[in-house]
């Protein structure tokens, strides 16, 4: 994904790291072991970066790329007025990026607006019930989001970043948002089935389980659309920083089908193949 020196340094780190494959080759690997080892490698890599990083000027990205296509697109994003906030690449990045930016907007609101937003998100719990989720399965995550809303008026951007670097808080909000997106798909089956139907009989349940509910599985296009529709108070712009032709990065905008708020948040993510960070215009 990245060219340049940074990634080479990372690879060296891995081979000299604490995970030594020869420790495991003496016995046959079963699926559970393979899963655990894969997770260990991912965790080991991921632990080098914070879950949610500091806001950086967009020009910092230029240092990561030698490729002229990428450099042209980064330059086209604008100069000093734009920035990005790196998010850990652990399979939850799009979800974490969206959730953080959502709360960052909310944090800047007046207390009564925060209260309104909170009741909007909490009212979505009925969607979880309609979709057939067991309360014991989701209630802890919903309560963690609720409690974050309650702490929000006392937080600054800096302390919100700390909140999101707390694995427990961050993970709970991500699971909550994943379940809301999946519940939206399940309760709007007629809208989504044409996109899910792959000719192999994949059901809505299977799709949601595989692509949305499973923790650490990257968000696809449909998942992002469902998230935006479920939350209903934010537009999402995804800036595609890839090798496609043209000097400008393609931007894909998701808008909620039925928006409950007049003024919607504008959340932007910066997509580079396989990874999302937050983009600031």
């Amino acid at each position: 994904m990245m060219s340049g020196q940074d990634s080479e340094v990372n690879q060296d780190d891995t081979s000299a790291g604490t995970i030594n494959p020869s420790d495991y080759v003496t016995e046959e690997l079963d699926d559970v072991t393979i899963l655990r080892l894969t997770q260990e490698i991912k965790d080991h890599e991921a632990s080098k970066t914070p879950l949610v990083g500091e806001l950086k000027p967009i020009s910092v990205l230029l240092d990561e790329y030698a490729d002229s296509t990428f450099r042209a697109k980064i330059k086209a994003l604008g100069g000093g007025s734009t920035g990005y906030r790196p998010i850990r690449g652990d399979g939850n990045c799009a979800w974490r990026a969206f959730a953080f930016r959502f709360f960052e907007f909310a944090q800047s609101y007046a207390p009564d607006q925060i209260a309104e937003l909170k009741s909007r998100i909490m009212s979505l719990t009925k969607l979880l019930n309609e979709a057939g989720y067991n309360e014991n399965g989701y209630i802890d995550f919903v309560e963690e989001t609720e409690s974050l809303f309650d702490r929000l008026p006392g937080l600054t951007t800096e302390t919100l970043v700390s909140e999101f670097n707390n694995m427990e808080v961050s993970s709970a909000v991500i699971v909550h948002f994943r379940l809301l997106a999946a519940a939206y798909v399940k309760t709007h089956a007629e809208d989504y089935m044409p996109f899910i139907d792959d000719g192999e009989g994949t059901t809505i349940e299977e799709y949601c389980n595989r692509q949305i509910e499973a923790f650490a599985v990257e968000a696809d296009h449909l998942a992002l659309s469902a998230l935006v529709n479920a939350v209903g108070v934010a537009d999402l712009g995804v800036v595609y920083m890839d090798r496609s032709e043209g000097e400008d990065a393609v931007v894909h905008t998701f808008e909620p089908m039925s928006a409950s708020a007049k003024e919607r948040m504008k959340i932007d993510l910066l997509y580079r193949p396989g990874h999302y960070d937050i983009f600031y215009r």
């Binding site: 079963d30 559970v32 899963l35 067991n134 399965g137 699971v175 379940l179 499973a214 923790f215």
Partner: peptide
């Protein structure tokens, strides 16, 4: 199910696990 150690091959117990599941489910 593995005859020797009783381990179960089921996708939801691996990569498809969802935090909304419980031990009972």
């Amino acid at each position: 199910v593995n005859w020797k150690d009783g381990l179960v091959c089921l996708d939801i117990l691996k990569g498809q696990w969802t935090a909304a599941w419980t031990l009972q489910s």
